[in-house]
């Protein structure tokens, strides 16, 4: 099956307007695999389904379509190093003003990232508050419920964490209530500012790759503003602020790469203001993480984590 060019163009435009995620030509397969099942549920072919959306006869479906296009697979302790370093190396770098450590897990999908952070910090000497956000209400519902299939818990979750922090529910595994109650899951669009800060750590991993350069810059500006002094941004293993935003410096801690806002990093853009699409920046786009070459984590054994 192949989709009509105007079907793809409509979906790509809709997704970009609603979420700032860009669907480049060549991603037609993604539209087919994500929206094909939705169309079939409604007894329609994909092109017919999208024609109805275009005609305005199915405006109530637009949010569902955007959600289906923006859900991403996620695993536990993704890339290992950022989590392995959290308690022993990152936490001591944060200023201790006697308050909780506040962490924002942005685009948290089905919750593996915020729960991984909490598990990594389970025995930390400071209290931890996590706000976890996603655009997609459906995945947030799953995250709040904290129920995962066996295939999902197989993805990068250390067995010792599984038996400590989960309980069996039939054929599934559920995050224990004490962990679940410590994450504040909220619907949030990265285009609409930030959740109420300030934060000591912002996890924004493997998200910026979907945005165009002006949007990346705008999001990074907001992150710089919402971080407490001495706080850090954590990006995906293949991501960098280099060539995108010059207001951050790279800091290594226990094998994890962190990004610290430089003083005045966020002054350039007005609060909450997004650049118009016509605005251009003479800087190269960071290469996509097609094949990662990041080195072996310097904490080679997760056996003792944390």
């Amino acid at each position: 099956m192949s989709i009509a060019p105007d079907t793809f163009a409509f979906v790509a435009d809709l997704v970009t307007r609603r979420s700032a995620i860009r669907l480049e030509p060549g991603k037609e397969y993604l539209v087919e695999s994500r929206l094909g099942p939705l169309a079939r549920e409604r007894g329609l072919g994909l092109d017919e389904f999208v024609r109805r959306l275009r005609s305005g006869a199915a405006d109530h479906e637009l949010a569902t379509v955007v959600e289906a296009m923006t859900t991403n697979e996620t695993s536990w302790f993704r890339d290992v190093a950022p989590f392995a370093a959290l308690r022993g190396h990152v936490l001591p770098l944060l200023r201790d003003s006697g308050q909780s450590v506040r962490i924002w897990s942005a685009a948290c999908s089905t919750g593996q990232e915020p729960y991984s952070i909490l598990m990594a910090l389970a025995d930390a000497p400071r209290t931890v508050e996590i706000v976890a956000t996603d655009l997609n209400e459906q995945v947030l519902g799953r995250a709040r419920e904290g129920v995962y299939s066996q295939l999902e818990v197989n993805r990068g979750l250390p067995a010792a964490m599984l038996v400590r922090h989960f309980e069996r529910v039939g054929a599934h595994w559920r995050v224990r209530a004490d962990l679940r109650s410590r994450v504040d899951f909220r619907r949030h669009n990265l285009m609409d500012g930030t959740p109420p800060g300030p934060f000591d750590l912002v996890f924004l991993r493997n998200v910026l790759i979907y945005f165009d350069l002006p949007t990346k810059r705008a999001v990074l500006d907001r992150v710089a503003r919402v971080l407490r002094p001495g706080g850090f941004l954590v990006l995906g293993a293949a991501e960098t602020t280099l060539g995108v935003h010059d207001g951050f410096e790279r800091v290594e801690a226990g094998g994890a790469v962190l990004h610290r806002p430089l003083p005045g990093a966020a002054r350039a853009a007005a609060p909450g203001l997004l650049p118009t699409p016509a605005r251009t920046f003479p800087v190269p786009v960071a290469p996509p993480p097609a094949r990662r070459t990041d080195p072996v984590p310097s904490t080679p054994q997760m056996r003792g984590l944390p």
Partner: peptide, 9 residues
């Protein structure tokens, strides 16, 4: 990867 036997990449 968790066991440090292969790189995360």
């Amino acid at each position: 990867v968790l066991l440090g036997m292969i790189p995360a990449g």
